[in-house]
Design a protein around this nucleic acid. Sequence first.
DNA 1: TAGATTGTTAATCGATTAACAATC
DNA 2: TAGATTGTTAATCGATTAACAATC
Lengths: 214, 214
Amino acid sequence: MAEKEISQAVIGRLPRYFRYLGELKERGIERISSQELSDIMKVTASQIRQDFNNFGGFGQQGYGYNVEYLYDEISKILGIDKQHSLIIIGVGHLGQAIANYTNFTRRGFVFKGAFDTNPELYGTKIKDVEVRPIEEIEDFVIKNKTEIAVLTVPKDQAKSLAARLSKCGIKAIWNFAHVDLDVPENVQVENVHLSDSLMKLSYNINRYENKTKK
Amino acid sequence: MAEKEISQAVIGRLPRYFRYLGELKERGIERISSQELSDIMKVTASQIRQDFNNFGGFGQQGYGYNVEYLYDEISKILGIDKQHSLIIIGVGHLGQAIANYTNFTRRGFVFKGAFDTNPELYGTKIKDVEVRPIEEIEDFVIKNKTEIAVLTVPKDQAKSLAARLSKCGIKAIWNFAHVDLDVPENVQVENVHLSDSLMKLSYNINRYENKTKK
DNA sequence: TAGATTGTTAATCGATTAACAATC
DNA sequence: TAGATTGTTAATCGATTAACAATC
């Protein structure tokens, strides 16, 4: 199969398409043209067609796209047609927020394990999942073939944990710690750097004020 | 002043520069060349120089960049040399995680108010801040000249809250709800769509497996 | 002064948009 | 068949990288 690499710019847009298609589906809309979708989503129709055509021809000339079909196809592309097991490392507020976020469960991300360094938490339960000491991570990941580890630990623990997880076959790390992780190429990393996001917000406040006041 | 608009691609990289410069500063390093920074950060030296030069010449030929000076300049560009008041709307786990995140406080984001729809929470405290009923938001924002509202509420409440906040002079919304907000141009929006991020992770797991197995 | 390294211009690369032939 | 709208090629735009003159 000709494995042309899709740019991350395109990938980054797929979840948003998926979200809008899900809404259209729920509203019972059967078909949509790239132009109609363009109006709703505020992106060009041209970009929509280009994006979809990276993965194959999902539409039909003179008709447009079938909403449900397109929705299903995007879910396959994103790999959320299958289940993914997930463990949470660091059971603070953020870890608990993620554990309790039902939307993830709905998308096939199944919460299987929770780990922390605080002995007082061992044995307590989050969503029917027992909190375990961090020492048990390797055993757990190997035994349960865990795919995704959510890192919601302080900065200084993140790098060594990422290294440990990489060694025992984890497939991906969803990193909320404010450091760049250095892992082998068989481990996928997706960063959520909240303070970076907040700084961008701050920049844009500033920029707008300078633009208007001067 | 010639207000050339800086691309969001550049802005998006500033927080990362800021983070690395902060680390260098802490390690007592006084000067750094674009080439050295390039090695550490894994971006081209050329990009580093281009990025900084969007905002002015911060370096010196033959010497490089003074770490502390550059750090301070970037903090000014990002607007984190000033304080920003912040309220949290929706006091679930995510809201609490943000309220308790000390790093934000350190960067000048001061947590001033908390709001929720659950009457049982009214009057309870999060980090010395009393939880108030959501009806009081307008009064609070106006009286306290609140700059940033953090939206950690369910999807269906987010749009109407964004509209209400826009009307009473909020400067920015940090949106964690899984919808695109539609606000006037004087209100800055920064989205954190966690499920989008998780889907990208899922895509990359998939992609890697297809690449290696086929 | 010589060496180092920036600031900046020019070249390249990639992503977005426009246009239109193919086709349902 | 005629009209609509895709899939795809070509044109444009913007962002990244390379190169080098300016200068500390």
